[in-house]
Simulated assay, not measured.
Amino acid sequence: MWSGRQGRLRPVGCVVEELRCRRREREAALRKARREQQLISKRLLRDDAPEEAEGGCVAVILGETEIQQFLRLAQRGTEEKERERALVSLRRGLQHPETQQTFICSVLDSTLPEHILRLLQPGPKLNLGVAVEFAWCLHYIICSQVNNALLISHGGLSTLGLLLLDMAGAVQRTEDAGLELLACPVLRCVSNLLTEAAVEVLGGQNQLEDDRVVAALFILLQFFLQKQPSLLPEGLWLLNNLTANSPSFCTSLLSMDLIEPLLQLLPVSNVVSQLVLTVLCNVAEKGPAYCQRLWPGPLLSCLIGTLAFPDIEVVGQSLELLQLLFLYRPEAAEDFLQQSGLQVMERHKEEAQLQDRVHALQQLALHR
């Protein structure tokens, strides 16, 4: 197949690997930036205490004794409000690197992780307020990457996966469950844990049930679309991390006919469009059998539509997905030409960031 950069025939596998490596490097930089931003970000979707919202309350650095005290109250407090207040204090303290480091001496090296993860186990005894606060505590710990391998080994992914399933069931039972408050930190926790190198070694992905987690995630995405669109990128980042290195999760998307619901999210925003296209690239790069399930269908006409977007990142990701599709399904290129795709793509040939990809796709479509 043609490569626009070198202008000579190259094996399909080399081109696909080059696209994959380029995307992985780009995503690694984005994930690092997201973790750093999330580590200092304040909570979303819900006002904290008035004094904190006004900036009058500065998070205090906690010592070992205070951390232990707050954890004991969270586990054994006699009242739910008492447990929640303890976790609020802990969550605020964990925004400081010093508190995070202390949390590694007194907690992560002990047997406590097993016990504190029980605060997030779904069931009739799950208290939403306590779960929200602890999920944000866990979020700051995971973002700081102090010892995520230990959290995974203690069943962190399986516990959070079960919680995702429970949340999806809850939003189906009631329209106003208030679970979007819990969904944000839980989605971030699972997404960030899945990027750990230790996941494969520890069998972390096996802690999640493929079909059930993907189905639950799409239920939550539909809920966010209607109730809280700002959470759509959080869910799509998780879907991206699930499908990046897992053919089984990609198969789940196809077998449950979830490509069209995914495509329906494209008009929401540029950020959402880019993440949707990234997930579809994850599917397409898995090979001819996967591309055969992607085309024919609505994908090609949707991609021609996204080529008309003014956002360079969205257009670039569309070009990358089209290149993968044409490499594995050359007959899709003919359909692309018949739908005037080449003319739509021409408008980007002078864009410095897109020139190489536009040229490569032109060569691929015309010399298939």
Rank of each mutant, 00 (worst) to 15 (best):
L225Q: 14
R357I: 00
V279W: 00
L325N: 13
S269K: 01
E64P: 11
N206T: 08
C184H: 12
P185T: 08
L94A: 13
L202T: 05
L238R: 07
L163K: 10
I312K: 04
E285T: 00
Y328T: 06
V279P: 00
L30D: 06
E64F: 03
G123D: 11
V107Q: 04
S110M: 04
L325K: 07
E234S: 12
R43E: 15
V201P: 00
L179V: 06
F103K: 05
L266G: 03
P50T: 15
A53Q: 15
E180F: 05
E82L: 13
V107E: 10
R72H: 09
L221E: 12
C281V: 00
H154Y: 04
G56M: 07
H96F: 03
F103V: 01
L294V: 00
Q68R: 10
K286G: 01
V213E: 03
L342H: 09
L319K: 07
V199K: 02
L30A: 12
L71W: 01
V358W: 03
E260N: 09
L258S: 09
T174D: 10
C291M: 07
P113R: 13
S191D: 13
Q172R: 11
R8L: 08
L187Q: 05
N127L: 06
N240L: 03
N127H: 11
A131G: 10
T102P: 00
L231I: 06
L354K: 13
E82I: 09
L324M: 02
A170L: 02
L126D: 13
K227V: 06
G316L: 01
L71N: 08
E196H: 02
I67P: 03
N147P: 00
Y140M: 04
K227M: 07
N282S: 05
Q38N: 15
A177G: 11
I40K: 12
L9C: 15
D356E: 08
L225F: 06
A183R: 07
P296F: 02
A131Q: 11
P124M: 09
L253I: 02
Q274V: 09
D210I: 02
L71S: 03
T102W: 00
Q205L: 09
R22L: 15
H115M: 10
Q100E: 10
G287M: 08
L342F: 04
V344Q: 08
L239P: 01
A360I: 00
L319T: 04
P247D: 02
L322K: 06
T174Q: 09
L258C: 05
I67K: 05
L94Q: 14
L254S: 04
Q38W: 14
N245D: 12
L280Q: 04
L128H: 14
P233D: 03
L232R: 09
E64Y: 06
L90W: 09
Q292D: 13
L39Q: 15
L275I: 03
L217V: 07
Q38G: 15
E84N: 09
P267Q: 06
K125T: 12
E80K: 12
W136V: 04
L208Y: 01
L337Q: 05
L366K: 12
R91T: 09
Q145M: 05
A183I: 05
Q95S: 14
E133S: 14
T99F: 07
L321H: 02
R24T: 13
L90A: 09
D335W: 00
N270T: 07
L265C: 07
C14A: 12
